[in-house]
Nucleic acid binder design. Structure first.
Length: 687
RNA sequence: GCUGCUGUAGCUCAGUGGUAGAGCACUUCCUUGGUAAGGAAGAGGUCACGGGUUCAAGUCCCGUCAGCAGCUCCA
């Protein structure tokens, strides 16, 4: 006897084992036809899944209206794509082909280099397969039989996967679709005819099982929908997102420049971008003062010994710019006739004298802490610096502002007693929250980065790590927002709480970070004198609410689609004169606003007003102040908002008061409509 | 770092082995206007860089550098 409970609470009883497909047919022929997948007791299964006798199960049936069905269908589409590619390129070795956010991919090993030009043929082949509408057939086997099948198919990766990957599985399953058989746990839609619209998107290299030690395969990304409208909407959304790309907008709006001759991943901040950065720094500067930080400045380089002590040099040599070798040492090396490989070896061994471009600010700040004797009464010591650091990121990783080789952290290090840890962590997290809220960036996730217990890249002992990780977990819990814990995401000296956001193409970036560190104080033998007149070890917190100015502004550009709120806009208002006759009045208004501290310019070109407005609009300038004869007579300006359009004429002083209010309260627009599309977010300071 | 694609005017991009093109921007002139493009003329290129093949290379081949997508990495 099988008892099936349906979502509406009703139950159905069956004498023997039953499948979701049979239940669907039992409910009605319409549903039987429309059903694509099912959920049995929370697990998504195919319609052919057998619910065994003697079971009481909750069953949901999914049709193309349900997102669950979409995922199942996309996986089926991956099989169809693999089948099509195999047909066109015999001898293809199949690897993995999972569903991902927004679509699916399949990894192939084949000699022919796939390119966009092959897509059409592959899609045409897929069309034929889908039109034939053959059913998926699930085949269950034991391990031995499964190995026989994949060996017979000549699928080496599948053989390896069964041998090394699926060691726990005694029962394995295959799905057959026409002549195509693939090792797969499923589920699949009943037949491929339901795949309404699909498109191959890109092809890129991907390592077998994700390890760069392994052979690189060709990964074809694609997506599928039940209907054409869904696909088109998806493609439009991708296009819209790309229009917000900070690399494009940065160029268009003149925010920053990257020059081949300067170097990969090294940002040149042009005046407008520098203005945005400056305003952000001023903003956080005010909070630093409120929270009791002291500002410090430290140089861009430091002796190798400093970084040997901190651990940066030995642990992260690969991702640093090579050391700047002392002139005397170089001479000695030359005199002794050392070979290049000798030099390389002594570099690796850390035997040489020299300097390093600083990869992090903490060693310098530590030396400031350590420059005088500290009493428990001095603590917390909070040292802040917009410190520029340099890291030798892999060339393939560099791009735009989000991954660079030189960047400025809004860094600070707190030296505290253990008792102060919880409270100080909270203060740091508060600051990060303020930063995110001030720009209306609410779409972020919190990640607690823990050590990977199997790795040897961390310094310090277990006990302190446990304490630090625990402190991070507790602090993250106070955020009142769900957070994820990820092993292996910790810094080499301690665990951290990271704030992660997406960029316009869905890549995740760590922005703000708060890290707990018991280890560097030990490595540098830091101390303070306690109330007991004995030396004690301080604990350190590393924190950067923006993370890096470069990355933060890159993400910010995309968040605002280039249309910065008034307080951040490099040009806040533009005077647009109706004709050159009113230039004098225009310049007078311009001077008045500038005197009040606003960033304004005037457009006095011999152009028609429409053209001037269009140009200002495309530059995403928040306000245009139109002045002509009427305004001049009354000492007014006509205010044109970049979003709402003409707001009508008002006295210059009224307009100024409005702008100043908007600036002081750091108001953020709910909707930004520029040439760059729409962005909508909820935040307290919206209007 | 790896795989693939790309590199032509300030920007976006055409260009089929036969001597370099468009639109926008820029400069000058005309036009002086009322809320998203007024008109005309002009200037602007070592076709990323270095080799090679060829009578001839922006175009074909190799290398380097850089960009893009993904993978790997990310203190």
């Amino acid at each position: 006897m099988v008892t099936i409970t349906l979502p509406d609470g009703s139950t159905k009883e069956y004498e023997n084992a039953v499948t979701p497909g049979q239940v669907a047919a039992d409910i009605g022929p319409g549903l039987a036809k429309a059903a694509l997948a099912a959920e049995v007791d929370g697990q998504i299964v195919g319609l052919d899944h057998v619910i065994n006798d003697g079971i009481q199960a909750a069953l949901k049936l999914f049709t193309k209206k349900d997102p669950e069905a979409l995922g199942v269908m996309r996986h089926s589409a991956a099989h169809v794509m693999a089948r099509a590619i195999m047909k066109i390129f015999p001898g293809v070795q199949l690897a993995f082909g999972p569903t991902i956010d927004g679509g699916f991919y399949y990894d192939f090993d084949l000699d022919h280099k796939l390119s966009d030009e092959d897509f059409e043929a592959i899609e045409a082949e897929m069309k034929k397969i889908i039109k034939a509408n053959e059913p998926f057939e699930r085949i269950e086997t034991d391990r031995e039989e499964a190995l026989n099948i994949v060996n017979e198919l000549g699928q080496e990766y599948k053989v390896e996967h069964i041998r090394d990957g699926l060691t726990e599985h005694q029962q394995l399953s295959f799905y057959r679709q026409g002549e195509f058989i693939d090792l797969c746990r499923g589920p699949h839609i009943p037949a491929v005819g339901a795949i309404g619209a699909y498109k191959l998107l890109s092809v890129a290299g991907a390592y077998w099982k994700g390890s760069s030690e392994n052979r690189q395969l060709q990964r074809v990304y694609a997506t599928a929908f039940f209907d054409k409208a869904g696909l088109e909407e998806h493609l439009t959304r991708i296009d819209e997102a790309k229009r917000r790309d900070h690399r494009t907008l940065g160029k268009q709006l003149g925010l920053f420049h990257i020059d081949d001759m300067v170097g990969q991943g090294l940002i040149l901040w042009t005046p407008k971008g520098a203005c945005v950065r400056q305003k952000l720094q001023e903003f956080i500067g005010a909070h630093l003062q409120r929270q009791g930080y002291d500002q410090v400045f430290t140089p861009h380089i430091g002796k190798l010994d400093l970084y040997k002590t901190s651990g940066h040099f030995p642990y992260y040599q690969e991702s640093q710019y090579p050391a700047l070798i002392n002139r005397d040492y170089m001479k000695k090396v030359a005199d002794e006739g050392c070979s290049c490989s000798d030099l390389s070896n002594s570099l690796a061994e850390g035997e040489i004298d020299g300097y390093l471009l600083k990869p992090m600010n903490c060693p310098h700040h530590i030396k400031i802490y350590d420059s005088q004797q500290r009493s428990y009464r001095d603590l917390p010591v909070r040292l802040a610096e917009f410190g520029t650091v340099y890291r030798w990121e892999q060339s393939g990783e560099i791009g735009g502002l989000t991954r660079v080789r030189g960047f400025t952290q809004d860094d600070a290090h707190l030296f505290i007693t253990e008792d102060q840890l919880a409270e100080e962590l909270e203060g740091c997290l508060e600051l990060v929250k303020i930063v995110f809220a001030s720009v209306g960036m609410e779409d972020y996730s919190v990640r607690v980065g823990l050590r990977d217990k199997d790795s040897d890249k961390y310094v310090g002992d277990q006990e302190n790590w446990d304490k630090a990780e625990d402190a991070c977990r507790r602090a993250a819990a106070t955020l009142g927002k769900p957070f994820i814990e990820e092993e292996g995401e910790a810094a080499f000296y301690g665990p951290k709480i990271d704030f992660v956001v997406n960029d316009c193409i869905g890549r995740k970036w760590q922005l703000g970070t708060v890290q707990v560190d018991y280890n560097l104080p030990i490595r540098f033998n830091l101390s303070y004198i306690g109330a007991d007149n004995q030396p004690h070890r301080p604990v350190m917190i590393h924190r950067a609410p923006f993370g890096s100015m470069e990355r933060f502004i890159g993400v910010l550009i995309e968040h605002f689609a280039g249309a910065f709120p008034l307080w951040l806009a490099p040009e806040q208002a533009r005077i647009v004169v109706v004709s050159q006759k009113f230039e004098e009045y225009g310049r007078q208004v311009e001077a008045q606003l500038k005197a009040a501290g606003m960033r304004v310019s005037g457009d006095y070109r011999a152009e028609k007003i429409g053209a001037k407005i269009r140009d200002a609009q495309l530059e995403l300038i928040p306000y245009m102040l139109i002045v002509g004869g009427r305004e001049m007579e009354n000492g007014e300006v006509s205010v044109r908002d970049r979003i709402d359009g003409d707001l009508g004429a008002m006295p210059v002083t009224d307009a100024l008061a409005k702008f100043q209010d908007e600036i002081e309260n750091r108001l953020v627009r709910k909707t930004f409509s520029g040439s760059a599309g729409l962005v909508s977010r909820d935040a307290q300071n919206e209007y």
